[in-house]
């Protein structure tokens, strides 16, 4: 697609999408958002990029095989779920580390896992679809 606006804007927009998606991910526990929505928005950024610059460029921009990103997300979710074993609690019990205003928790790790899994999955799908011409 040879639209000048799109090809110029895509880089910035993709960055904006990514930024916004991280924002949505991180605040999800308290306001609307979370891993799913974040993942969807983040992936949408790269989908746009692939429209503007082609799939190959988009794949290069992602650097890693999107399937691997997804699997790492799943791994993260598993780790978050199993981490409670260290505190001998039930599986998937949240462990919280609250430093002043910053709350770090396995629940957040889990949500990041969701984010990555959704992100990877959608990019896998869209890229594979795009490449079937």
């Amino acid at each position: 697609m040879n639209s000048l606006i799109l090809s110029v804007g895509a880089r910035f927009l993709t960055a904006l999408f990514l930024l916004f998606s991280l924002f949505v991910l991180l605040r999800g526990h308290n306001s609307p958002g979370g891993g799913f929505i974040g993942g969807l928005i983040g992936a949408a950024g790269f989908v746009l990029y692939s429209f503007a610059a082609g799939v190959d460029a988009a794949r290069r921009a992602v650097r890693v095989d999107p399937r691997a990103i997804g699997v790492w997300g799943m791994a993260l979710a598993i780790i978050a779920g199993l981490a409670s074993a260290l505190a001998s609690l039930d599986p998937f019990t949240g462990l919280w580390l609250i430093l002043a205003d910053l709350a770090l928790s396995t629940v957040l790790v889990f949500d990041i896992g969701v984010y990555l899994a959704v992100f990877g999955a959608i990019l896998t799908l869209v890229f594979a679809l795009e490449e079937t011409l």
Partner: peptide, 9 residues
């Protein structure tokens, strides 16, 4: 006998 466990406690 029957055992149960709660996810996330």
């Amino acid at each position: 006998g029957v055992i149960a466990g709660q996810i996330g406690g």
